[in-house]
Design a binder for these strands. Structure first.
Lengths: 199, 199
DNA sequence: CGTCGAATTGATGTCATTCAACTACAGTGG
DNA sequence: CCACTGTAGTTGAATGACATCAATTCGACG
């Protein structure tokens, strides 16, 4: 059993009883992916959410300029999914890929909808996830609208300190919307200014 | 009765029966705001959603640089709300302001939750609104990550052609994350390239 | 008619990109 | 075990996109 398994997540974060969580969890499909493998391809219809029990995923898309833009990272205890694709049944415009060897729980598109019939707690919890997602996206928009590369990077460190050590620098740059070269220079400047991300 | 009233919106967009819609609608509070008035202040807790029946609202926040960044426009038939503030009971970090004289329907924070008890259709509809919101935000993030000022502007025209004529240019610039001067130049270039936004 | 904010234009500055070269290092196969 | 290769990261110089600052024009409204 993993340190971060979906069952204890349900109990703790979603306030679901241990019996219900156990019953649900045992029915769910688990899967392992090797580093570098693709969990969702562009143009496919996303029919699962993934809950990460171990490892690290990322979702990204190709911009009109042909460059990768990283949408989200998902380390342990996070969900990742193309919600638009799931909900609207649209072909996805993004990829999901394993950054490390990763173990996930697969949640079919209707997981929360059907679980909601067992207990309304699930519906409420999904609602909470949606709102968290919106809040997080809004923060990101705020940063992209106003902040310099340096402030975006600092805010990234603050929000995802654990990822710093696990994600290659060029992916962080891609997430921030800058080039790897620029990020390298930002880091150099910060070092000069005597900044240490406690690593 | 307005051309765009919440009642017909409920019937058409939310697939709610005419009787239920009528019953609900008559209980709801309506309000008028003059151009320039503030519907929600920063640091206040947002306790309403607003549905615009007539006029135009915008929400915006002040960046760390002290500049306004526009988060959203809401013309007729749109909702506007600081969802994070409503859902998490956080003080809002944004403002909502009337760009034109505007008539709104006020939806208390628990409108959909309580309406859900009348019919699950309301819950489903709110879910749809949340997913639409997420999809729209994702599009915006994609643009901010990759696109030049010009492509952002073109995409704005495509998505909100009606707003072009109603919103002052500096607000569009603010929404796009560029300065009014830059937008002016972008437009000049487009004009030279013989581009006409069919106006 | 005079005032004020919106929009345009020009000159200049700044931040980030681009392109290219170079280093460091991990993985591969001889 | 060592050379070979490819990818990540760094650095420099030139370029480009957008910002800033300042001056001017335009148009709405009292």
């Amino acid at each position: 059993m993993n340190e971060f398994n979906f069952k204890s997540y349900l109990i703790n974060a979603a306030a679901i009883s241990e019996e219900q969580a156990t019953e649900l969890y045992d029915k769910l499909q688990k899967k392992k992916y090797e580093k570098g493998s693709i969990l969702l391809n562009k143009d496919a219809i996303c029919s699962n959410s993934f809950f990460v029990e171990k490892g690290l995923l990322r979702s990204y898309r190709l911009g009109d300029d042909g460059k990768e833009h990283i949408i989200q990272f998902a380390p342990e205890n996070w969900f990742i999914v193309d919600r638009s694709s799931v909900y609207f049944n649209d072909p996805s415009d993004s990829f999901i890929e394993a950054v490390e060897d990763t173990e996930v729980v697969l949640l079919k598109e209707n997981f929360f909808a059907t679980a909601n019939k067992i207990s309304p707690v699930f519906g409420q919890f999904n609602d909470k996830l949606l709102h968290n997602h919106i809040r997080q996206m809004q923060k990101r928009i705020n940063l992209l609208l106003g902040a310099t590369a340096e402030r975006r990077y600092l805010s990234f460190i603050e929000m995802y300190p654990d990822l710093l050590l696990r994600v290659p620098q060029w992916m962080i740059a891609s997430y921030l919307g800058i080039t790897p070269e620029s990020l390298s220079r930002v880091r150099k400047d910060l070092a000069k200014k005597n900044f240490k991300p406690s690593k």
